[in-house]
Write a protein that binds this DNA or RNA. Structure first.
Length: 414
DNA sequence: TCTGGGGTCCTAGGACCC
DNA sequence: TCTGGGGTCCTAGGACCC
């Protein structure tokens, strides 16, 4: 499968707001990902409204949106929570019109504005999407021509050169801040300049990844549509603490909770883990504090998805790396060396009950938590009489779960 | 006081083999 | 003076993505 010629198309849709980061907030000087403590004074002074993230709500709206978009092609790659690729190859009709239809449909049924980018490769579709998102703020014909839905594959070569020449390299999918700066330092500022570079020397001076990106920008497809996502190769859960944590007991609770989460995700993909990685660290932002960061990787006794067995490894690891006297700011657990649970090495029965576990116990735990909510059944270590532990993330300004909790349903006034 | 939480891929270099 | 020439595998770290 390729999108190498003009009859094949790849589409990228994206539901982030047309104007990222909200104009009013930006006018107040709030930057993307600014820490709350730096801007909280604006809440009183300027009426800034801050909200905690609500992953249940996002996940549900994402499912609805991606399901609707998926109706428009037999092949869909879900790329992230708010973004997907569709293969338009062989579909009848005009792609720009299809893009507008998708936008209208998602807006009507989910209420979320989306942007659509169309190109002959995934990288070009992503670029088209970026142009669709930002065109409204650009002068002249740009906005009329490209806003919200942009198809780069129908442009004349002159017009395409104009667009490439007007777009900075850092907007390209795969060019981050580091590569972007190195390119700029080498005098390469626009996409127009980037696509004309010599490929062998580009590969030598940068990497095969950047070479692939440039080939994609030239219309040569190097990235496949991955509509059958494989199992994850690592599963992680980590959090900054809501307040500094000093004791091994609190760290144990946090690591226990994180281990429970990764084990659940592992079972959801029918996997087993052969290694587990635990890390704890102080806050690098608190220069006045003594710093400490340590991690350890521990093989599990056998490839497992059993929370109890994984806890044995993670807590043993934690005890090895814990040092008293530090203000810990973050802890995490990562599962590695993952494999499907269909390939299991047979074992001699030497009286270890976990070796005989058939997965029914964990299956029951997962079923209960699905039905009655996360945390209904957890490890005893993670429990405490006090509801809010200092290590837990704070959720003071969470929005209601409008679409997933009966109690949070919006009320219509009469 | 307070600073996101996940992932992926690639490369260089070290350890080890014959 | 001059100290081989292939390989493989693993890991850490860097870069990117949303």
């Amino acid at each position: 499968m390729s999108w190498g010629n003009a009859t094949d198309y790849c589409l990228n849709t994206n539901s982030r707001p047309l104007i990222p980061n909200n104009l009013e907030a930006r006018a107040l000087g709030v930057s993307m990902a600014a820490p709350w403590f730096q801007i909280r004074h604006l809440a009183e002074e300027a009426g800034l409204i801050a909200l905690s993230s609500n992953y249940a709500l996002y996940g549900d709206l994402s499912d609805r949106m991606l399901t609707i978009i998926g109706e428009y092609s037999p092949r869909q790659e879900i790329y992230s929570i708010d973004e997907c690729f569709l293969d338009f190859q062989g579909l009848p009709g005009i792609n720009v019109e299809r893009g507008h239809a998708i936008r209208a449909w998602v807006l009507q049924w989910v209420g979320i504005p989306t942007c659509v980018g169309i190109g002959s490769t995934k990288t070009l579709a992503k670029l088209a999407n970026h142009i669709a998102k930002t065109a409204e703020r650009k002068p002249g014909s740009y906005a009329r021509e490209f806003a919200r839905v942009c198809d780069l594959s129908v442009l004349s070569s002159d017009r395409r050169d104009e667009v490439f020449g007007a777009t900075e390299v850092k907007e390209v999918w795969g060019v981050g801040p580091r590569i972007g700066k190195r390119l700029n330092d080498a005098g390469v500022r626009t996409i127009g300049e980037l696509v004309n570079l010599d490929l062998p020397s580009l590969r030598q001076q940068f990497s095969v990844t950047l070479e692939r990106t440039v080939r994609e920008l030239r219309g040569v497809s190097c990235l496949q549509l991955e509509d059958m996502p494989g199992a994850r190769q690592q599963i992680m859960c980590s959090r900054f603490f809501g307040a500094p944590v000093l004791t091994l007991q609190e760290l144990t609770q946090a690591i226990t909770a994180h281990t429970g989460r990764v084990a659940e995700k592992l079972r959801a993909q029918q996997g087993l883990a052969g290694q587990l990685h635990v890390f704890i660290r102080t806050s690098p932002f608190r220069k006045q504090d003594k710093q400490y960061a340590q991690a350890i990787t521990i093989p599990t006794a056998r490839p497992t998805a059993h929370t109890g067995e994984l806890l044995n490894s993670s807590l043993a690891g934690l005890r090895k790396i814990y040092r008293p006297g530090y203000k810990y700011a973050k802890a995490g657990v990562m599962l590695m060396d993952l494999r499907p649970n269909t390939c299991v090495q047979g074992e001699l029965d030497i009286g270890d009950p976990l070796a005989r576990d058939t997965g029914q116990l964990m299956g029951a735990v997962d079923a209960l938590n699905r039905r009655f909510g996360r945390g209904t059944v957890t490890s005893g270590i993670a429990r405490s009489s006090i509801a809010q532990q200092p290590w837990q993330m704070r959720h003071e300004r969470c929005t209601p779960c409008y679409t997933t909790e009966w109690a949070d349903l919006a009320l219509a006034r009469t």
